[in-house]
């Protein structure tokens, strides 16, 4: 028992205290590494995409539609950062202007999915069991179609074009959000704090507005950020097969479609817009995941 009296720091434990310091150094370093380079890079890419979407003139002086057949299929150079395509249009310029389409389509389609999914999920979560079953089965039916197929059906019925493309993508995204919101709502409705709030005499609408909705929604912005990437690539896929905005619109999927016949002579017309698309999708996913990790850390 005499050892108890001796302060820990005074004990001769050279090797072990070395291990302690190393462990402490590792832990401290880990704390500084909280924001990894990947997230910073992703934020920078999203920043660029936003800039391109809202102020493309700041990034390029060229006209995305003006053709110059004399300068067709030129490789990247100082004059044309990403070269020119088969009509002599500046590829970099078209990528910059295309950001707006991709972003607008992605954002509005995601907004439609989130909003509809949220309403359905919340309604299912707080309704009596029969209504919950009705909504949930309807969502199941929607989810049972592959999303691209569902979008194809919508476009086949309504015809190609920007608005229909957005509607199609938005519809196919609904089930995912609806299911998550329903699960969250059920969890919150059965939670101790909702029970407590009932005991405090809160009315049902107030209960839902003050406790159920905000707590069930917590995860939605996170999911939406991840979902945005999917919506953007889905939009590109549909435009690629000619169901989106029609040429000469500089939409990324459409650019890829136009470039595919010239890949052997002018790889830059396909590879570089493709890289822009990939980078945007990955960036939004990375940001969403980082946000999700932060959200989950905040949970008890």
């Amino acid at each position: 028992m005499s050892a108890l009296a001796l302060p820990v720091s005074l004990r001769p434990q050279a090797s072990a205290s070395g291990a302690r310091e190393r462990a402490l150094a590792r832990a401290t370093a880990a704390q500084h590494r909280r924001r990894p380079a990947g997230v910073i890079l992703a934020a920078a890419i999203m920043g660029l995409v936003l800039l391109a979407a809202f102020a493309p003139q700041l990034l390029t002086a060229a006209d995305p539609i003006a053709a110059d057949l004399l300068a067709a299929n030129q490789p990247p150079s100082a004059a044309h950062l990403a070269g020119t395509d088969y009509l002599g249009r500046d590829v970099f310029c078209r990528i910059v202007y295309g950001a707006r389409y991709s972003l607008v389509i992605g954002l509005t389609a995601t907004a439609i999915s989130v909003l509809a999914g949220l309403l359905l999920g919340l309604a299912a979560g707080i309704s009596p069991r029969w209504a919950d079953s009705l909504i949930s089965r309807a969502v199941d039916v929607l989810a049972s179609f592959p999303s691209i197929l569902l979008a194809l059906v919508v476009i086949a019925v309504a015809g190609p074009g920007l608005v229909n493309l957005i509607a199609a993508l938005g519809l196919s995204g609904i089930p995912g959000y609806a299911r998550v919101v329903r699960a969250q709502t059920l969890q919150v409705v059965r939670s101790g704090y909702v029970e407590q709030a009932r005991a405090l005499g809160l009315s049902r609408p107030r209960l839902i507005a003050a406790h159920v909705l905000p707590n069930a929604l917590g995860v939605v912005p996170v999911l939406a950020t991840i979902g945005l990437g999917g919506a953007i690539s889905g939009a590109a896929a549909l435009s690629f097969i000619g169901l989106g905005p029609q040429p000469p619109t500089p939409e990324w999927g459409a650019i890829l479609a136009e470039s595919r016949n010239y890949l052997r002579v002018a790889w830059w017309t396909g590879i570089l817009p493709g890289a822009a698309l990939t980078a945007t999708v990955i960036a939004s996913t990375v940001l969403g995941r980082a946000w999700q990790a932060r959200y989950e850390r905040r949970q008890p």
Partner: peptide
């Protein structure tokens, strides 16, 4: 019918944390 009188009976739960809105 109970709403107005609810506050006359109050609950104290075993796990207080789960009885608080996390926000």
């Amino acid at each position: 019918g109970r709403l107005a009188r609810r506050r006359q009976i109050q609950l104290i739960a075993q796990d207080p944390l789960s009885s608080f809105d996390p926000r």
